[in-house]
Design a protein around this nucleic acid. Structure first.
Lengths: 119, 119
DNA sequence: AAGCAATACATAATTTTCTTAGGTATTTAT
DNA sequence: ATAAATACCTAAGAAAATTATGTATTGCTT
């Protein structure tokens, strides 16, 4: 899984596209490595995206038209920036709403018996 | 995926064990079919566990010692009840805490840029 | 200057987990 | 009678991650 340090490997999957798209939401262009570092930083190392998960996902997002890319050379080293398309913007809000709704449903489902979770 | 009606097939995976274990938390013994119906009912049809996902998961939970089973015959039809073990109780609280924490992390990660989600 | 860590990209084999599709059989409602 | 609901199960395939590689540049340390 792309989560290494904190969460068990079976817990949550399928949120990677949502995480990536959401980071690009406000028009920032970001490159792959930058995304991994940003997520790591924002979550205090709780979520660490591995490269084996990241790059195939970025390529899939490009293929389905949610992002376009822009290569930039920093010296001899290449950086591939990812920018959200208009379609991508639609996808982000759909995905985030969906995830928000799912989390509400899960919260209800897990608290339903009356016991209160420590959080 | 085991979610049919509402959530996209890529969104969330890996929460099935947590859902099942949590339903058994307060000592209720439940059988497979009952679990699918309970989840369907509690989530207003938003989450529908398919049998192809359910039974292998139940067998895995038994194998790893989180539940034990008890066969009961209702007429000629068999029901296999699942009951949480002491180890299972530990697993539930770990899983639920983990999921709760992950959802908090995700919420922070998705709201970080200042925009407010409609929920 | 050598060597290691960090930066930056990428793919491939494997594993896990779910979907889809199939199978058996009993009970209840029409 | 026959269809729908109840109740169990497995197997083939797909999707998404993990783990293990690979390449190459840049910066830091000794």
């Amino acid at each position: 899984m792309y989560i290494c340090s904190m969460y068990s490997s079976e817990l949550i999957k399928g949120t990677l596209k949502t995480i990536i798209l959401n980071l690009l939401k406000n028009g920032d262009k970001m490159y792959g490595y930058e995304i991994t570092q940003k997520v790591k930083e924002l979550t205090s190392d709780k979520i660490q995206i591995t490269e084996g998960a990241l790059y195939p996902t970025l390529h899939a997002l490009e293929k389905q038209g949610d992002v376009i890319t822009e290569k930039v050379y920093i010296g001899k080293r290449v950086r591939k920036y990812y920018i959200l398309t208009d379609q991508g913007k639609k996808t982000v809000s759909e995905r985030v709403s969906e995830l928000t709704d799912f989390m509400k449903t899960m919260k209800f489902l897990l608290d339903i018996d009356g016991s209160v979770q420590n959080a």
